[in-house]
Write a protein that binds this DNA or RNA. Structure first.
Length: 295
DNA sequence: TAAATCCTGTCA
DNA sequence: TGACAGGATTTA
């Protein structure tokens, strides 16, 4: 469920409050949420350790311990990370509980059991998913040139490349559609078909839309909440995602839903594609929107 | 590059 | 009852 803006919001809501706390105990209520080792082994490894920070890389959260050990969490589709008072009723689908000093516990809940944690001992090589992540789109190091390199030679749909975590870290299904709408590109065009000025537009919009998402504390379409259980606000500002059959907020054309790379995909046929910033020739040709599922 | 897979819940 | 859901990996 959570993409970069949601994971960043969770990090911001929890990081200051976790800093310096001691892990008093750990329990894997659902053992499958711990990867590689047993829940009991994690309990032995983390009990007594002090939390030195909480950071984000792509859609991963890293709970950093003062020893240099790290707990790597991924929320996948329905994961939540919540800081709650000890003794308060456990949320349903609670999978992991870190009992902390000062009477609170960090709970990982996850309806669909896709998410989970890895334990990384200090100095150990990173798990593959983390090591192979593409650049952080909001970092200064992510330049138009970097994006150009990511897109070059890629015949896959532009949206699929945006979603590919090896190419770029943190963009998911909602923000991919929003980025493509605000930059005026159809999701299904080959990634390598963008011209250099178009890549510059896309680069700017990737950063703009993700930053907007962060500043509105993420998008709650289903069950996303931050570390305090607060939903986001960006769902009110979505331009295309989840809006099939509704009017585009820019041109009043009807938003269309289709499938791209196996993912539900929303776009505006007027703002994106031949009526958008590319191929203004007016050459009438069919695009995937013609057999949409939406309205 | 698509589909199946891991799961559970919700909605039409 | 079937389709679909914010993700990512594996398989064909």
């Amino acid at each position: 469920m959570p993409e970069l803006p949601e994971v960043e919001t969770i990090k911001r809501s929890l990081a200051p409050r976790l800093l310096g706390r001691r892990i008093e105990d750990f329990q894997a209520i659902w053992p499958g949420a711990v990867h590689g080792i047993t829940g009991e082994r994690v309990r032995e490894l983390v009990t007594g350790q002090v939390i030195g920070g909480l950071s984000r890389r792509g859609k991963y959260l890293l709970l950093e311990l003062a020893s240099g050990d790290r707990i790597v969490l991924h929320l996948r589709m329905t994961g939540q990370l919540l800081l709650k008072p000890v003794g308060s009723p456990l949320e349903s689908h609670t999978r992991l509980v870190f009992n902390l000093s000062q009477g609170e516990e960090l709970r990982f809940t996850d309806i669909r059991k896709f998410g989970g944690m890895d334990f990384l001992a200090a100095g150990c090589p990173e798990i593959s998913g983390l090591r192979e992540l593409g650049p952080e789109p909001l970092a200064d190091a992510f330049t138009t040139d970097i994006l150009k390199g990511i897109l070059s030679g890629r015949k896959a749909p532009l949206k699929s490349v945006l979603l590919d975590q090896h190419s770029l870290a943190g963009v998911g299904n909602i923000y991919a559609d929003e980025i493509l709408h605000s930059s005026g590109f159809l999701p299904m065009v080959p990634a390598c078909s963008l011209t250099e000025p178009e890549i510059a537009v896309l680069h700017a919009k990737i950063r703009e839309v993700l930053a907007e998402g962060v500043s509105h504390r993420g998008t709650t379409k289903r069950n996303y909440v931050d570390g305090d259980g607060r939903p986001g606000e960006y769902q009110e500002r979505l331009r295309v995602y989840g809006r099939a059959g509704k009017q585009c907020t820019v041109c009043e054309e009807t938003i269309v839903r289709t499938m791209v790379g196996g993912r539900g995909t929303y776009y505006c046929p007027q703002c994106q594609g031949e009526q958008g910033s590319r191929n203004r020739k007016g050459k009438p040709h069919k695009h995937a929107g013609d057999n949409n599922i939406g309205d």
